[in-house]
Simulated assay, not measured.
Amino acid sequence: MESSLPDSTIFYLYNDLHPGKKMKILFTDGGTKYFALEVNSKEAQIIREEIGGCEEPNMEGEEKYCATSLASLIDFNVERLGQNIRVLSTEAGKMQEYTVSARTRLIGDDKAAACHKMRYPYAVHYCHVIADTEIDEVPLVGADGAKVKAVTVCHLNTSAWSPDHMAFQALKIKPGPAVCHFLNSDTLVWVPEK
């Protein structure tokens, strides 16, 4: 989740996002891995870690599922959010500084699911519903003038999170405050249609 752009991050505090705010952001996708991997290679280790995340216990207030097909991906979200839902994602953007060009738009709260594409040889999505969240769409303008609509998730209560979570390290804070983060362009966010 850390950006490779120097002095940049995908994390920010809840009240930090307002028109005129400048942030260095790299919107990436997880990429695709293929089956021709050496057993002890870095790529094989990444795959082991990714699948290990599916088997870890849920965080407090989290319900998760690793979807291995399009049908199971849709079923997970329909079961939790109902039949009338829509899916959103961040538009792809290149590595540069972005400025928030207008007010953010609330597109979902509490009842939302995020499905992150995992780095795996075939399509696996790590889907989870986390309590006390807010989903916003943020209009951004890049230094080169490119416009990007980014989707962010704000976790309104982080008191139960591990103090070692990378968000706290990036923001230099302790668990508790609301923490938000931009989503990569290959993450799908599902919300009930209003």
Rank of each mutant, 00 (worst) to 15 (best):
A146P: 05
L171D: 00
V39R: 12
D136R: 13
N84R: 13
C66P: 01
R86K: 15
K64H: 14
S41D: 09
E193V: 06
E193D: 14
C127T: 04
W190V: 03
F76H: 05
H181K: 10
I46Y: 04
K21N: 07
V39W: 10
R119S: 14
G31V: 07
G20L: 12
G142H: 04
E193M: 12
V138K: 00
L26Q: 13
A131K: 13
M166N: 10
H116M: 07
L140P: 01
C154G: 03
P163I: 08
Q45H: 13
I74G: 05
V78N: 10
K147E: 14
A36W: 10
A44T: 12
Y120D: 04
C54Y: 05
A160S: 15
F76V: 05
L37W: 03
N40Q: 11
G93P: 06
H18T: 12
K117W: 00
P57D: 13
H165N: 12
L140C: 06
N157L: 09
E137C: 04
G30Q: 10
V138W: 03
S69Y: 12
I10N: 00
Q96T: 06
A146K: 13
E38I: 11
E62M: 13
K147L: 14
D29T: 09
K194G: 08
T9A: 08
F76D: 03
S89E: 12
V148L: 04
I10G: 01
E97M: 07
G31I: 10
A170P: 03
G53L: 10
I47C: 02
Y34F: 15
Q169S: 14
M23W: 07
V179P: 02
V179M: 08
A112Y: 03
V189C: 02
E62N: 09
V153T: 02
R48I: 12
G20T: 07
E193Y: 13
L17G: 02
S89F: 11
F35V: 15
S101D: 09
S101P: 01
A114L: 11
W190D: 01
N15K: 15
A92Q: 13
V191W: 03
P121C: 14
L13R: 11
L17W: 05
E137R: 02
K172D: 04
S3F: 00
I51E: 02
I46M: 08
P19R: 11
I107S: 01
R48T: 10
P192F: 10
I51A: 03
T158N: 05
K174D: 13
L70Q: 15
V191T: 03
T99Q: 09
S89Y: 13
F11V: 03
V78T: 10
G176L: 08
S101V: 05
E55Y: 15
W190S: 02
A178C: 06
Q169N: 15
D7S: 15
E2N: 11
N77P: 03
V153Y: 01
P163V: 06
S101Q: 10
T99I: 12
V151H: 00
M1D: 08
T68P: 06
S159G: 14
K111W: 12
I46R: 05
Q83I: 10
T9G: 03
F168H: 11
Q96D: 07
S4P: 00
Q83G: 12
V129T: 11
D109Y: 13
P177Q: 09
V138F: 06
I107F: 06
K117T: 06
H155V: 08
F182M: 10
D110E: 15
L188C: 08
E137P: 06
E91M: 07
E137V: 01
L73I: 09
A131H: 10
